[in-house]
Protein backbone atom coordinates (compact mmCIF):
# COMPACT_ATOMS: atom_id res chain seq x y z
CA UNK A 1 0.00 0.00 0.00
CA UNK A 2 1.32 3.45 -0.85
CA UNK A 3 2.29 5.32 2.32
CA UNK A 4 0.06 8.27 1.47
CA UNK A 5 -2.98 6.08 0.84
CA UNK A 6 -2.32 4.14 4.01
CA UNK A 7 -1.99 7.25 6.15
CA UNK A 8 -5.05 8.78 4.60
CA UNK A 9 -7.14 5.65 5.15
CA UNK A 10 -6.03 5.35 8.78
CA UNK A 11 -6.61 9.06 9.39
CA UNK A 12 -10.14 8.75 8.05
CA UNK A 13 -10.74 5.70 10.20
CA UNK A 14 -9.49 7.54 13.28
CA UNK A 15 -11.65 10.54 12.41
CA UNK A 16 -14.73 8.38 11.99
CA UNK A 17 -14.10 6.73 15.36
CA UNK A 18 -13.46 10.13 16.92
CA UNK A 19 -16.89 11.21 15.75
CA UNK A 20 -18.37 7.95 16.96
CA UNK A 21 -16.80 8.59 20.35
CA UNK A 22 -18.49 12.00 20.42
CA UNK A 23 -21.81 10.40 19.54
CA UNK A 24 -21.84 7.69 22.19
CA UNK A 25 -22.92 8.27 25.77
CA UNK A 26 -25.66 7.63 28.30
CA UNK A 27 -27.41 10.90 27.45
CA UNK A 28 -29.20 10.19 24.20
CA UNK A 29 -28.46 13.24 22.11
CA UNK A 30 -29.53 13.44 18.49
CA UNK A 31 -27.01 14.21 15.78
CA UNK A 32 -28.12 17.79 15.19
CA UNK A 33 -28.36 18.39 18.93
CA UNK A 34 -24.81 17.07 19.41
CA UNK A 35 -23.38 19.17 16.61
CA UNK A 36 -25.12 22.27 17.88
CA UNK A 37 -23.98 21.53 21.41
CA UNK A 38 -20.42 21.11 20.29
CA UNK A 39 -20.21 24.37 18.42
CA UNK A 40 -22.86 26.59 19.95
CA UNK A 41 -21.66 26.56 23.55
CA UNK A 42 -23.68 28.03 26.39
CA UNK A 43 -25.32 26.44 29.38
CA UNK A 44 -27.56 23.99 27.56
CA UNK A 45 -27.29 20.38 28.70
CA UNK A 46 -26.26 19.24 25.22
CA UNK A 47 -23.51 21.84 25.04
CA UNK A 48 -22.12 20.91 28.45
CA UNK A 49 -22.26 17.20 27.68
CA UNK A 50 -20.52 17.62 24.34
CA UNK A 51 -17.87 20.14 25.36
CA UNK A 52 -17.11 19.18 28.93
CA UNK A 53 -17.60 15.42 28.90
CA UNK A 54 -17.48 13.86 25.44
CA UNK A 55 -15.00 16.12 23.68
CA UNK A 56 -12.26 15.70 26.34
CA UNK A 57 -12.84 11.97 26.28
CA UNK A 58 -12.63 11.73 22.50
CA UNK A 59 -9.57 13.99 22.38
CA UNK A 60 -7.84 11.86 25.00
CA UNK A 61 -8.74 8.67 23.16
CA UNK A 62 -7.28 10.10 19.98
CA UNK A 63 -4.08 11.50 21.44
CA UNK A 64 -3.38 8.67 23.88
CA UNK A 65 -4.01 6.06 21.20
CA UNK A 66 -1.70 7.96 18.86
CA UNK A 67 0.97 8.13 21.56
CA UNK A 68 0.76 4.44 22.43
CA UNK A 69 0.80 3.32 18.81
CA UNK A 70 3.75 5.51 17.96
CA UNK A 71 5.64 4.61 21.14
CA UNK A 72 5.19 0.93 20.35
CA UNK A 73 6.42 1.42 16.79
CA UNK A 74 9.50 3.40 17.82
CA UNK A 75 10.44 1.00 20.60
CA UNK A 76 10.12 -1.97 18.29
CA UNK A 77 12.25 -0.19 15.71
CA UNK A 78 14.86 0.98 18.14
CA UNK A 79 15.23 -2.30 19.99
CA UNK A 80 14.82 -4.30 16.79
CA UNK A 81 12.37 -6.27 18.85
CA UNK A 82 8.86 -7.07 17.66
CA UNK A 83 7.61 -7.64 21.19
CA UNK A 84 8.62 -4.25 22.58
CA UNK A 85 5.70 -2.16 23.76
CA UNK A 86 5.39 0.40 26.57
CA UNK A 87 2.97 -1.80 28.50
CA UNK A 88 4.81 -5.09 28.12
CA UNK A 89 8.24 -3.73 28.96
CA UNK A 90 6.91 -2.05 32.09
CA UNK A 91 7.09 1.62 31.09
CA UNK A 92 3.36 2.18 31.59
CA UNK A 93 3.36 0.36 34.91
CA UNK A 94 6.25 2.46 36.17
CA UNK A 95 4.54 5.62 34.95
CA UNK A 96 1.41 4.59 36.85
CA UNK A 97 3.47 3.93 39.96
CA UNK A 98 5.16 7.33 39.65
CA UNK A 99 1.82 9.09 39.33
CA UNK A 100 0.36 7.15 42.24
CA UNK A 101 3.39 7.79 44.46
CA UNK A 102 3.30 11.55 43.92
CA UNK A 103 -0.47 12.02 43.84
CA UNK A 104 -1.67 9.89 46.73
CA UNK A 105 1.11 10.94 49.05
CA UNK A 106 -0.56 14.35 48.92
CA UNK A 107 2.78 16.07 48.30
CA UNK A 108 1.08 18.41 45.88
CA UNK A 109 -2.26 18.58 47.69
CA UNK A 110 -4.71 16.98 45.33
CA UNK A 111 -3.48 19.02 42.40
CA UNK A 112 -3.83 17.38 39.01
CA UNK A 113 -0.34 18.28 37.87
CA UNK A 114 1.05 15.88 40.45
CA UNK A 115 -0.05 13.06 38.13
CA UNK A 116 2.11 13.81 35.07
CA UNK A 117 5.00 14.95 37.24
CA UNK A 118 5.10 11.56 38.90
CA UNK A 119 4.24 9.58 35.78
CA UNK A 120 7.00 11.14 33.68
CA UNK A 121 9.52 10.38 36.39
CA UNK A 122 8.38 6.78 36.59
CA UNK A 123 8.36 6.31 32.83
CA UNK A 124 11.79 7.88 32.48
CA UNK A 125 13.26 5.61 35.12
CA UNK A 126 11.77 2.58 33.37
CA UNK A 127 12.99 3.50 29.89
CA UNK A 128 16.50 4.28 31.13
CA UNK A 129 16.68 1.00 32.98
CA UNK A 130 15.44 -1.00 30.00
CA UNK A 131 17.79 0.74 27.59
CA UNK A 132 20.70 -0.02 29.87
CA UNK A 133 19.62 -3.65 29.96
CA UNK A 134 19.02 -3.82 26.23
CA UNK A 135 22.43 -2.25 25.58
CA UNK A 136 24.16 -4.94 27.59
CA UNK A 137 22.20 -7.81 26.21
CA UNK A 138 20.00 -7.17 23.23
CA UNK A 139 18.02 -10.37 23.30
CA UNK A 140 14.25 -10.33 23.17
CA UNK A 141 14.06 -12.57 26.16
CA UNK A 142 16.07 -10.25 28.40
CA UNK A 143 13.88 -7.33 27.52
CA UNK A 144 10.62 -9.15 28.06
CA UNK A 145 11.78 -10.68 31.34
CA UNK A 146 12.98 -7.29 32.55
CA UNK A 147 9.61 -5.87 31.56
CA UNK A 148 7.76 -8.58 33.45
CA UNK A 149 9.85 -7.92 36.55
CA UNK A 150 9.44 -4.17 36.23
CA UNK A 151 5.67 -4.42 35.68
CA UNK A 152 5.18 -6.68 38.67
CA UNK A 153 7.32 -4.51 40.88
CA UNK A 154 5.59 -1.34 39.78
CA UNK A 155 2.17 -2.97 40.20
CA UNK A 156 3.02 -4.12 43.70
CA UNK A 157 4.39 -0.72 44.68
CA UNK A 158 1.29 0.94 43.25
CA UNK A 159 -0.91 -1.34 45.34
CA UNK A 160 1.26 -0.61 48.38
CA UNK A 161 1.02 3.16 48.03
CA UNK A 162 -2.73 2.99 47.47
CA UNK A 163 -3.19 0.76 50.49
CA UNK A 164 -1.23 3.13 52.65
CA UNK A 165 -3.32 6.11 51.60
CA UNK A 166 -5.48 7.42 54.42
CA UNK A 167 -8.28 7.95 51.90
CA UNK A 168 -10.45 4.83 52.03
CA UNK A 169 -11.38 5.22 48.36
CA UNK A 170 -7.80 5.23 47.18
CA UNK A 171 -7.26 1.49 47.42
CA UNK A 172 -10.14 0.90 45.01
CA UNK A 173 -8.47 3.03 42.40
CA UNK A 174 -5.88 0.33 41.78
CA UNK A 175 -8.13 -0.91 38.98
CA UNK A 176 -7.84 2.38 37.19
CA UNK A 177 -4.07 2.38 37.44
CA UNK A 178 -3.67 -1.22 36.30
CA UNK A 179 -6.34 -1.18 33.60
CA UNK A 180 -6.86 2.39 32.54
CA UNK A 181 -9.98 4.27 31.62
CA UNK A 182 -11.02 7.45 29.85
CA UNK A 183 -14.23 7.84 31.84
CA UNK A 184 -15.19 11.22 33.26
CA UNK A 185 -11.99 13.01 32.29
CA UNK A 186 -12.29 16.75 31.81
CA UNK A 187 -10.71 19.25 29.46
CA UNK A 188 -8.21 19.98 32.24
CA UNK A 189 -6.80 16.50 31.68
CA UNK A 190 -6.45 17.21 27.97
CA UNK A 191 -4.50 20.41 28.56
CA UNK A 192 -2.36 18.63 31.08
CA UNK A 193 -1.39 15.69 28.89
CA UNK A 194 -1.66 16.82 25.28
CA UNK A 195 1.32 19.24 25.20
CA UNK A 196 3.55 16.64 26.81
CA UNK A 197 2.41 13.95 24.41
CA UNK A 198 2.91 16.26 21.45
CA UNK A 199 6.45 16.94 22.61
CA UNK A 200 6.92 13.19 22.79
CA UNK A 201 5.67 12.75 19.21
CA UNK A 202 8.13 15.34 18.01
CA UNK A 203 11.10 13.73 19.70
CA UNK A 204 10.08 10.33 18.37
CA UNK A 205 9.70 11.73 14.86
CA UNK A 206 13.21 13.14 15.06
CA UNK A 207 14.54 9.63 15.60
CA UNK A 208 13.00 8.35 12.34
CA UNK A 209 16.25 8.12 10.35
CA UNK A 210 18.03 6.49 13.23
CA UNK A 211 15.53 3.67 13.65
CA UNK A 212 15.72 2.94 9.93
CA UNK A 213 19.50 2.64 10.13
CA UNK A 214 19.16 0.53 13.25
CA UNK A 215 17.44 -2.16 11.19
CA UNK A 216 21.00 -3.16 10.29
CA UNK A 217 22.28 -3.16 13.88
CA UNK A 218 24.06 -0.53 15.91
CA UNK A 219 27.42 -0.81 14.14
CA UNK A 220 25.99 -0.35 10.69
CA UNK A 221 23.75 2.45 11.95
CA UNK A 222 26.70 4.29 13.46
CA UNK A 223 28.60 3.89 10.20
CA UNK A 224 25.66 5.53 8.46
CA UNK A 225 26.23 8.64 10.55
CA UNK A 226 23.66 7.91 13.25
CA UNK A 227 24.61 9.42 16.58
CA UNK A 228 23.65 6.66 18.97
CA UNK A 229 23.68 8.71 22.19
CA UNK A 230 21.48 11.34 20.62
CA UNK A 231 19.10 8.73 19.25
CA UNK A 232 18.85 7.06 22.61
CA UNK A 233 18.06 10.40 24.23
CA UNK A 234 15.35 11.21 21.65
CA UNK A 235 13.63 7.88 22.11
CA UNK A 236 13.96 7.70 25.90
CA UNK A 237 12.66 11.23 26.31
CA UNK A 238 9.99 10.86 23.63
CA UNK A 239 8.57 7.61 24.99
CA UNK A 240 8.77 8.79 28.60
CA UNK A 241 6.98 12.05 27.80
CA UNK A 242 4.30 10.43 25.70
CA UNK A 243 3.59 7.32 27.73
CA UNK A 244 4.10 9.17 31.02
CA UNK A 245 1.56 11.84 30.13
CA UNK A 246 -0.88 9.29 28.69
CA UNK A 247 -0.68 7.10 31.78
CA UNK A 248 -1.01 10.08 34.09
CA UNK A 249 -4.50 10.86 32.83
CA UNK A 250 -5.76 7.48 31.66
CA UNK A 251 -3.95 4.83 33.72
CA UNK A 252 -2.22 1.88 32.13
CA UNK A 253 -3.67 1.00 28.74
CA UNK A 254 -1.74 -1.97 27.48
CA UNK A 255 -1.18 -3.69 24.16
CA UNK A 256 -2.24 -0.85 21.85
CA UNK A 257 1.43 -0.23 21.07
CA UNK A 258 1.93 -3.92 20.40
CA UNK A 259 -1.09 -4.81 18.33
CA UNK A 260 -1.20 -1.79 16.08
CA UNK A 261 2.35 -1.79 14.68
CA UNK A 262 1.98 -5.48 13.91
CA UNK A 263 -1.29 -5.07 12.11
CA UNK A 264 0.02 -2.19 10.06
CA UNK A 265 3.60 -3.26 9.37
CA UNK A 266 2.66 -5.65 6.53
CA UNK A 267 0.94 -2.73 4.78
CA UNK A 268 4.18 -0.71 4.77
CA UNK A 269 7.66 -1.20 3.34
CA UNK A 270 8.51 -2.36 6.88
CA UNK A 271 10.98 0.47 7.14
CA UNK A 272 10.61 1.43 10.84
CA UNK A 273 10.29 5.16 10.17
CA UNK A 274 7.49 4.54 7.70
CA UNK A 275 5.54 2.82 10.46
CA UNK A 276 5.56 5.69 12.97
CA UNK A 277 2.72 7.79 11.56
CA UNK A 278 0.46 4.89 10.53
CA UNK A 279 1.00 3.22 13.89
CA UNK A 280 0.04 6.45 15.64
CA UNK A 281 -3.11 6.82 13.55
CA UNK A 282 -3.93 3.14 13.95
CA UNK A 283 -3.39 3.39 17.71
CA UNK A 284 -5.77 6.32 17.87
CA UNK A 285 -8.35 4.35 15.88
CA UNK A 286 -7.98 1.25 18.07
CA UNK A 287 -8.23 3.09 21.36
CA UNK A 288 -11.20 5.15 20.21
CA UNK A 289 -12.92 2.01 18.97
CA UNK A 290 -12.27 0.23 22.26
CA UNK A 291 -13.52 3.23 24.20
CA UNK A 292 -16.70 3.36 22.13
CA UNK A 293 -17.14 -0.37 22.63
CA UNK A 294 -16.90 -0.23 26.43
CA UNK A 295 -19.61 2.39 26.46
CA UNK A 296 -21.88 0.31 24.25
CA UNK A 297 -21.29 -3.07 25.88
CA UNK A 298 -21.93 -2.05 29.47
CA UNK A 299 -23.49 1.40 29.37
CA UNK A 300 -24.18 1.68 33.10
CA UNK A 301 -21.33 0.06 34.95
CA UNK A 302 -18.87 0.91 32.20
CA UNK A 303 -15.89 -1.38 31.76
CA UNK A 304 -12.41 0.13 31.91
CA UNK A 305 -11.03 0.46 28.40
CA UNK A 306 -7.75 -1.05 29.62
CA UNK A 307 -9.65 -4.28 30.29
CA UNK A 308 -10.75 -4.43 26.68
CA UNK A 309 -7.34 -3.66 25.20
CA UNK A 310 -5.84 -6.35 27.41
CA UNK A 311 -8.52 -8.81 26.32
CA UNK A 312 -7.62 -8.15 22.69
CA UNK A 313 -3.90 -7.71 23.22
CA UNK A 314 -2.89 -10.55 25.47
CA UNK A 315 -3.94 -13.37 23.10
CA UNK A 316 -2.33 -11.44 20.27
CA UNK A 317 0.88 -11.24 22.27
CA UNK A 318 0.86 -14.99 22.85
CA UNK A 319 0.31 -15.59 19.16
CA UNK A 320 3.24 -13.30 18.39
CA UNK A 321 5.47 -15.15 20.82
CA UNK A 322 4.70 -18.38 19.04
CA UNK A 323 5.20 -16.85 15.63
CA UNK A 324 8.35 -14.94 16.62
CA UNK A 325 10.18 -18.22 17.02
CA UNK A 326 9.95 -18.95 13.34
CA UNK A 327 9.76 -15.67 11.52
CA UNK A 328 11.28 -12.29 11.07
CA UNK A 329 8.82 -9.44 10.87
Amino acid sequence: MKPLALNLALALLALALFLASLAVGPAELGVSESVRGLFAGGGEAAAIIMREIRLPRALLGLSIGFTLGMAGAVLQGFLRNPLAEPGIIGVSAMAAFGAVAVFYSGLAGSALYALPAGALTGALAAVLLLMALAARNGSTLTLILAGVALSSLAGALTALVLNLSPNPFASYEIIFWLLGSLKDRSIAHVWLALPLMAAGWLLIALSARAIDALSLGEEAAASLGIHMARTRFLIVAGVALGVGAATAVAGTIGFVGLVVPHLIRPLTTRMPSRLLLPAGLGGAALLLAADVAVRLVLPAGELNVGVLTALIGAPFFLWLVVRARREVF
Binding site: G43, A45, I48, I49, E52, I53, F103, Y104, G106, G109, S110, L112, A114, S165, P166, N167, F169, A170, Y172, E173, F176, D184, S186, I187, A188
Partner: peptide, 19 residues
Protein backbone atom coordinates in the same frame (compact mmCIF):
# COMPACT_ATOMS: atom_id res chain seq x y z
CA UNK B 1 -9.23 14.44 52.49
CA UNK B 2 -6.21 12.58 51.28
CA UNK B 3 -6.17 12.77 47.48
CA UNK B 4 -8.10 10.30 45.37
CA UNK B 5 -9.09 10.35 41.71
CA UNK B 6 -12.67 9.48 42.54
CA UNK B 7 -12.98 12.84 44.28
CA UNK B 8 -12.56 14.59 40.95
CA UNK B 9 -15.80 13.21 39.51
CA UNK B 10 -18.26 15.09 41.75
CA UNK B 11 -16.12 18.18 41.10
CA UNK B 12 -16.15 17.72 37.31
CA UNK B 13 -16.31 21.00 35.33
CA UNK B 14 -19.41 19.72 33.55
CA UNK B 15 -21.35 19.96 36.83
CA UNK B 16 -20.03 23.40 37.58
CA UNK B 17 -21.13 24.50 34.13
CA UNK B 18 -24.79 23.84 34.97
CA UNK B 19 -26.11 27.36 35.47
Amino acid sequence: DAPSLGAFVPRHPALRALP
